[in-house]
Design a protein around this nucleic acid. Structure first.
Lengths: 249, 249
DNA sequence: TAAATAGTGTCTATGAGACACTATCAG
DNA sequence: CTGATAGTGTCTCATAGACACTATTTA
């Protein structure tokens, strides 16, 4: 009898969910994890792609964040290194079942060791590339709008934080990290300025190995603090956008 | 019969509220609006001070933000110039009535023309000064924690945005604006650097009047865009904290 | 006149941007 | 050797910080 207490409250309770926008980078492409909506009786948006998430289980979830972590672990099989709240979205029309609100989390992960183990059926889960117009895709609910907000947040924070380091495999070179910045920002950064800043920030530990290839070997690094992002005093610049900070949230 | 549809959903619905942290500055003091909890049958935290807010009215509120605006207008009688989402807080224990989640908004307003008209009884509503230890006060629910988060957000954004301009009366001098920055940041700023930055940002319109007093008159300004904050490329500095940006959210 | 606050001139230090330069590998 | 990418030296420019200076009012 889950609704015994409801009568003591004067207002109807909105449907409440938690959704997660989780990004990664692979093949020099920013990607977001999507799941396919189930097809069934009374299911909204059957068969459409959606952000991972779902209803809060008030019996199992102690709070919103652990609900988000639970859902992520169910999908990716790993404990994500970076998780923050993006915001919440609630209105009368986003869910055909009624007034609903979703608490949205924003997560980043590297892709070295992970397979999307979950669910069995791989067609139900995919790392979708984030093209320029992905926010126009026919995602379920208002998830296209939420994804757009997450992208804005990501791009904005990448301007002045070390967030891209959370999108890397465990070990990486400075050039690879710079490429991740460039992929997200959609512009090139100046090599010397980038390296000076990142190294001065003391974010990275060198690992005593080099990445070899058909050229001069590159020093490998790994994140020193895998839980907290670094904030640079100034945004990354570029030739055309000397003050490209955008709205920082 | 508000709960007819509930049986189609497998999970219990958390209680859902919207709360607002609204700041202002008066008498060189940062203040937050608090309301007294009602005393009555089944009311949690009776008589305690709390952030303004309450249940979503799914019949009247089209979305979360309009719910927040409705509650603010009920309390302050004005349309607040700055409103953004702070985040959401939900867990099993914050409300004795059950698993609950609140969507929290962050608002700023100037105090020139406003009386707390609402409610009639003035003892139910107050602009509480934000002292160093206000977050230890015995606010209702987890509102002390939410207030602490809002303060962190405010202080963080004041380092690199024009947010304090939204805390000013309609017309103000540069020195008064600088004082507001200093009150919030808890440290003094360098006059010349402050003025150069603010004027270069092209945020303000001069009004063709001066503020007179027992000294040289000061130019009066007003905000050019009363809806959008400006983001400075670098944080405001100080003697002791050349890189005092903190975590920007 | 003094007191008080408004507002400016100017020097220095810091770090980003540009870009050419050197370094070290495979083949 | 060449090709390719890693990594550095160094100059210029913008702007913050410091702080002393001038400006304009009332009493």
């Amino acid at each position: 009898m889950p609704h015994v207490k409801t009568q003591t409250i004067d207002f109807d309770r909105p449907l409440t969910t938690v959704d997660i926008v989780i990004f990664t980078v692979s093949e020099e492409t920013l990607r977001v994890l999507l799941v396919r909506r189930p097809v069934g009786e009374g299911e909204p948006f059957p068969g459409r792609w959606a952000l991972p998430g779902g209803f809060i289980d008030t019996a199992k979830d102690a709070d919103l964040e652990s609900c988000a972590r639970r859902k992520l672990t169910e999908k990716t099989g790993v404990d994500v290194p970076y998780l923050e709240q993006l915001g919440s979205y609630g209105n009368a029309i986003r869910d055909p079942r009624g007034w609903s609100a979703t608490h949205v989390y924003f997560a980043l992960m590297g892709l070295d060791d992970v397979e999307l183990a979950a669910g069995g059926n791989a067609s139900e889960l995919r790392w979708a590339p984030v093209h320029a117009d992905i926010t126009g895709e026919a995602l379920a609910f208002d998830h296209a709008e939420i994804l757009a907000a997450a992208l804005t947040r990501l791009r904005s924070k990448v301007e002045y934080t070390s967030l891209p380091a959370f999108l890397m495999p465990v070990e990486f070179t400075l050039t690879e990290l710079q490429r991740t910045y460039e992929v997200i920002l959609g512009r090139e950064l100046e090599k010397k300025a980038f390296r000076t800043r990142v190294l001065a920030a003391d974010l990275l530990d060198t690992v005593p190995r080099m990445q070899v290839g058909a050229n001069r070997p590159a020093q490998l690094y790994r994140l020193r603090d895998t839980r907290k992002a670094h904030v640079f005093a100034r945004p990354f610049g570029s030739a055309d956008a000397p003050n490209a900070a955008g709205m920082r949230r």
